[in-house]
Design a protein around this nucleic acid. Sequence first.
RNA 1: UACCCCGUGGUGUAAUGGUAGCACAAGUGCCUUUGGCGCACUUAGUCAAGGUUCGAAUCCUUGCGGGGUAG
Length: 360
Amino acid sequence: MSEEIPKKLVAAISGGVDSSVAAAIFLEQGCELIAVTLKMRSCENPPDKRKSCCGIEDDMYARGAAEKLGIPHYFLNAREQFEERVLRNAWHEYSLGRTPNPCALCNRHLKFGALLDYAVKIGAGGIITGHYSRIERNESGVSLHRGVDPEKDQSYFLFGLTPEQLGKSFMPLGPFTKSEVREKARRFGLPNAEKTESQDACFGFRDETFAQTLCGLFKGTPRRGLIKDKSGKAIAEHDGIHLFTIGQRRGLGIALGAPAYVVEIRPDSGDVIVSKDENDLLSDRLTASNLNWQAADFAGRKFSCLAQIRYRGKAVEAEVVPLPDGRVEVKFEKNMRAITPGQAVVFYEGERLVGGGWID
RNA sequence: UACCCCGUGGUGUAAUGGUAGCACAAGUGCCUUUGGCGCACUUAGUCAAGGUUCGAAUCCUUGCGGGGUAG
């Protein structure tokens, strides 16, 4: 493996333990590293920030880690791209009654987009990230595999990476579990070794959900409407379809004697349909658009695989059938719960991620 | 106007003389590099005022509120 590693690499440092350890691992192998922290819009207005993952505190941790490792550290301004390619896209999705997946977009456009471009521009051979996924390289090319820690595997969010992006990426944490990584952090003496996990969207303000923040940011007009049951009977009013997603239970504010779940969102009328029957959430098929193939030989043909509908969801046996219009139909071996438009379907062959697309 | 029925936490209900329970909702926490699901915990009630009784959501009286029936 070592001979394939470029001598000079950019280490994507977020401030968290993972990316710092990833950098440390490569440093041990004698690489010349340059630490870079992506600055996204969320890093502004620290006092208003709810999360710590992109706040000023993380910038300090990132700087501290780079310092400890003895490598230069820079911030890369990606605010505009983040706003356009991730946030605006996400808001648009909400307006269509879909549920965006900002992390997948961010990976494709920011971390493995803007940041990778920057790395190449300054003459680095690629980037190192702290994702819990494995990238394998051999004569036939690059491939992405699940991380060995099933609780931390993040390959789902990386389905949108092209083979080219993968080829210039390095994810040294894939073979390790979270606790092993933390142990390494201690050994390396990293200042963020005991830092708590970051979680939730890295962009959002206090007491607001991601959707609410986006609505305010883009001065969007919430598509208000009614919460109805399957028969069309109105049950309550709601403040905007962006506040709902398929399968959602909490936040509906309606007491029907049994839990009620969102089964459909109609962007045109603003209706949100709920049902007390969880069976209404079950379906064994879906179609997906804008496919991305990391394994070229899977494109355009029918195949069987393990398909995953959501992050941390269980992958299920499925058959993928190409459609004439370039989309794909996925038929699952068993019913899936709450297939959600806007989320990704990701195809695995064993541990290997072969491709994926966006659920219609 | 008379007669009848009903009135329990935010919602729907259980308990007809003896510790006011359940479901849903809501809140908090856990989980989680999206959204959701899930799990744990918590909050909150007998319409009001009198009376009977050792003891009342439960019985009686009145009032208030809602519904029904009275050519």
